[in-house]
């Protein structure tokens, strides 16, 4: 059965979960006119707004739509795009689709895992970086592909991993100065 990012282990403690903003959830439910058949779209929108699907939001959606909570969890863990833990401030998404795989995506994922000391699907304990894999984002011609937040980087090698990390670290240092 498909284990998803959502259900995989995370290094994030429950206590670091941010407070859930239910008013954003209400707005989204309103937009979708409390329509049960829109459940997937609702969850996607909530995730866009909050960064992940916090348990209180799911309970609230379940009550508002009269859909059993088990079914909502069923959906949230069936589809790989959903996550139940907070994401990092920055996200590395490594494509492990076929085209990227045959060009060495595995090495790239492993290099990220080593450098960040987390497994793919996890977030660093300081919530700074998240590492995810995806099955193809449609830029196969220039694989292996890594997406840093929303920016695509093609023809990745293990050598380019520290460069990407350093760039973000530098930006972080500048912000905190």
């Amino acid at each position: 059965m498909a284990p998803s990012n959502a259900s995989s282990a995370s290094t994030v403690e429950e206590s670091t979960m941010p407070e859930t903003d239910l008013s954003a959830v209400n707005d989204i439910l309103e937009q979708h006119e409390y329509d049960q058949t829109e459940l997937i779209a609702i969850l996607l929108n909530v995730q866009d707004a909050l960064g992940f699907l916090p348990p209180p939001a799911l309970t609230h959606i379940s009550e508002q739509l009269s859909v059993p909570l088990t079914e909502i969890y069923g959906i949230a863990t069936f589809y790989t795009q959903f996550r139940l833990t907070p994401p990092g401030r920055h996200k590395f998404t490594v494509c492990t689709g076929t085209a990227c795989h045959v060009r060495g995506a595995v090495q790239v994922v492993e290099e990220f895992e080593r450098r960040l000391c987390i497994c793919s699907g996890e977030t660093t304990p300081d919530l700074e970086y998240g590492l995810e894999t995806v099955n193809c984002v449609g830029a196969c011609a220039i694989g292996p592909l890594v997406i840093v937040d929303d920016e695509y980087h093609g023809e990745m090698t293990t050598m380019k991993v520290p460069i990407l990390l350093r760039r973000l670290e530098r930006a972080r240092a500048e912000v905190s100065e």
Binding site: C95, T96, G97, T98, C100, C136, G138, A139, C140, A141
Partner: peptide, 12 residues
């Protein structure tokens, strides 16, 4: 849905 990882015709 173009789930085939390594295909991007439909996307384009």
């Amino acid at each position: 849905d173009e789930g085939d990882p390594g295909a991007f015709m439909d996307r384009c």
